[in-house]
Amino acid sequence: MHLAYPAVLAALLFATGLYGVLARRNAILVLMSVELMLNAVNLNLVAFDVWLRDTLHAGQALTLFVIAIAAAEIGIGLAIVLMVYRNRGTSDVDRLRDNAEGPDDDTSPDDPTAAPAPKDEKAEATA
């Protein structure tokens, strides 16, 4: 098999995941795009391992490790997203700009109003 096929497919999948990470607004969709990028890396690793006929099979071992680390990452990431949703009432990454600093100073008056808002939403989430 031509080596360019899996390499090109991995590059395209990586770019697709990159677009998803940059363009998506929901945090869970961002996590899905991260999974796509990790899978592109896995495909590259497997293809080059099979091409090089490594006696240690470092590519396949690293693929298994990447899969395990991706599973851990998705667990932690979803826990963080759920905690953010519980505290803020949203999983919209564009609205999590408490640390934002920049020309849009009109958002800073929203911060005192945004501070009690999580409590309200938390109250209604736990109600």
């Binding site: 395209l12 770019a15 677009y19 940059l22 363009a23 998506r24 607004r25």
Partner: peptide
């Protein structure tokens, strides 16, 4: 309606350039 954020064109440009 708000699945995509406002920086879609920039994301598309970066992704196409990377691809």
């Amino acid at each position: 309606p708000d699945a995509d954020s406002g920086n879609r064109p920039a994301a598309l440009a970066v992704a196409v350039a990377a691809a």
